[in-house]
Design a protein around this nucleic acid. Structure first.
Lengths: 150, 150
DNA sequence: GGCAATTAGATTGCGGACAATATAATTGTA
DNA sequence: TACAATTATATTGTCCGCAATCTAATTGCC
């Protein structure tokens, strides 16, 4: 393949990723609207539902989602406004914020339980293909994570 | 797998896509900075370099990149400001804008030619794996495209 | 203990995404 | 040929991402 061919849009792995990611998020939107949250907010809730009733600080949350405080701080404030989370100062370390679920936030998990199945219905991929794609992507992420600090 | 397990972050195809996409875009950033453009602007340039010297209207560009005018209009204005493109009214249809490369915009392709190779060097995936992942993603996109209008 | 270096999070500013809406040109049709 | 419906783009408003910078708390080290 020539250098010029390598510049064609359809040969870009990055574009496939970028467009695919947005397309899938688009499928989530109507489902998440019923919960009153956005897609990145949903990801935060996934982490909180997983570690609940433990609280989590912003740094750890950011490491989990690969997002920084510039993104998370306003997002978390919105979730707090919505009454889904609390943002308490950590007593041991006044710099840190402990993020935890409110009762409503914990309850929302019940409503979210059906989302994965709804989505799989809309993405007509075989389970095997689905898992393969996911594991290839996770592999890609691991590889990028491990090389980006060199 | 239980319903609750399906809500775990690491089981989400969507998160793998979302985080993977951002991680790859992060790799492009320093390379594109040298060209003075952002990643979405780069995608627009890829399309223009491909169809040049033909002009393209905003609608077609949007279909190619899966972006709407709300995203493209300001982005194209910035590319115009940077002197890389022109935004002319179409004579046959005064509603449409014809987007075309300026001389500088066309010349920038020369600087961009080395980007794919630079990137591949940073993503330590075998060529075969790379192509497989890309084609899986393109398949996913096709599937989503074809079902989203039903 | 005192102070420089580090760390956690917040803030600012810019550039996307995208829904909703607006505007202006074009087309289809009675 | 009017004029309703459609189409192409632009605008507005909200919510991310992320770089750069700031503030305040903590840690390391003399």
């Amino acid at each position: 393949m020539s250098k010029a061919d390598l510049l064609k849009l359809d040969n870009q792995l990055c574009f496939a990723l970028y467009a695919g990611s947005r397309a899938v998020i688009r499928l989530y939107r109507p489902l998440l609207e019923k919960l009153g949250i956005t897609y990145p907010q949903y990801l935060v809730m996934l982490v909180l539902w997983e570690c609940s009733p433990e609280a989590i600080n912003v740094k750890t949350l950011g490491e989990r989602l690969l997002l920084d405080s510039g993104t998370l701080t306003p997002l978390l404030k919105r979730l707090e406004q919505s009454g889904l989370i609390e943002r308490k100062r950590c007593l041991d370390d006044e710099r840190a914020r402990l993020i935890s679920l409110t009762e409503n936030g914990a309850k929302l998990k019940g409503k979210a339980l059906c989302i994965p199945a709804s989505l799989i219905k809309e993405v007509p991929l075989e389970t095997a293909q689905f898992k393969q794609l996911r594991s290839h992507l996770q592999n890609l992420l691991n590889v990028l994570q491990s090389t980006e600090h060199k």
